[in-house]
Simulated scan of single mutants.
Amino acid sequence: MITLFSFQFAYAQVALVCLVAIFIGMSKTGVHGAGMLAVPLLATIFGGQHSSGVLLPILVLADVMGTWYYHRHASWEHLKLLFPWAALGVVVGTVIGSYIDDKVFRIIMATVIVGSVIVMLWLERGHKEAVPHNKAFGITTGVLGGFTSMVGNLAGTVMAVYFLSMRLPKNTFIGTTAWFFMVTNWFKVPFHVFAWHTITWNTFLLDLLTLPFILLGAVAGVWIVKKLSEKAYRWFIISMTLVAAVVMLLR
């Protein structure tokens, strides 16, 4: 066992936290799906709601890296539509999350994860053209994105479906996604601190220790996007995410 800022960890759990940071870094520089795998892995250590607060500062740190690298590639036309509705979704998620226990919280997270995987599989089978791309869909996506982002940091697939439907080029897709999550995640911080009390000084210090692993994941993500096909990796992420979701649900 090892003690870090009032937390007692087995060595395997420390390694898992570092792996989560690597996955988050990769997800912010274009390796989609890695972030979703990180969520249930961290929940197995900290529980559902508390893990969302532990993960948020890691996401914020990674968002800065992703936005810095892709800051010139963003569609502000789409972001201006999404931001106010995402803020509403965050508020709704905060209220609902305040009235449910951790078991229900984990069930919601697992359900969102499994649903996201189903959507990912549907998209993989060539149905991207079937996704609508109108204003009403953007508003709905904004609310769902804010809600799922607050309740478990699980908005990745929701937003991916929307941005894919907008037919954005690869770099614009990554840059727009990076800006959306950086703004949304910063907006969520006060709710975690003052409403849910899931971000504390100790959790923040713990998250700072993961910074080298976030950077490692970010560099790896850039390399993968540039050099390798993501298809096999996406199938690996889909499979492992399903396994992690089941473990989280049954734990």
Rank of each mutant, 00 (worst) to 15 (best):
F191C: 07
M150A: 09
I237T: 12
I174P: 02
R234K: 13
L41A: 11
V64A: 12
F105N: 05
G33C: 07
L79R: 08
V183A: 10
E124Y: 09
V92N: 00
G221R: 01
T210M: 15
W85L: 13
V189C: 07
I113E: 00
I107T: 12
S51Y: 02
F46Y: 14
M150D: 10
T176D: 06
T157M: 14
V31K: 05
I199L: 08
S52R: 04
V60I: 15
D63M: 03
V119H: 04
I45G: 08
F194S: 07
A86D: 00
V104H: 08
F7S: 07
L37A: 06
V104F: 07
N153W: 00
G152K: 07
L242Y: 02
S165L: 00
P84S: 09
T141E: 09
D63R: 02
G145V: 05
L228K: 15
G25V: 05
D63I: 10
P57F: 03
V104E: 08
K231D: 13
Y233R: 05
S51A: 15
I22N: 02
I58G: 08
M150W: 03
H133A: 15
I139Q: 06
V117W: 08
K226L: 01
V91E: 00
A155L: 05
T148I: 08
G47H: 06
V91Q: 06
I118H: 06
R106C: 08
D102K: 04
G35H: 04
M182C: 12
T67V: 15
S51H: 05
V54P: 04
L121Y: 12
T141I: 11
V112F: 09
W122K: 07
L41M: 15
V225T: 03
M248R: 02
K188L: 00
M248K: 01
N153S: 13
L4K: 10
I199D: 03
C18Y: 13
T172D: 14
A87Q: 02
V143P: 12
S149G: 14
P212S: 11
P40L: 03
D101V: 06
K28M: 08
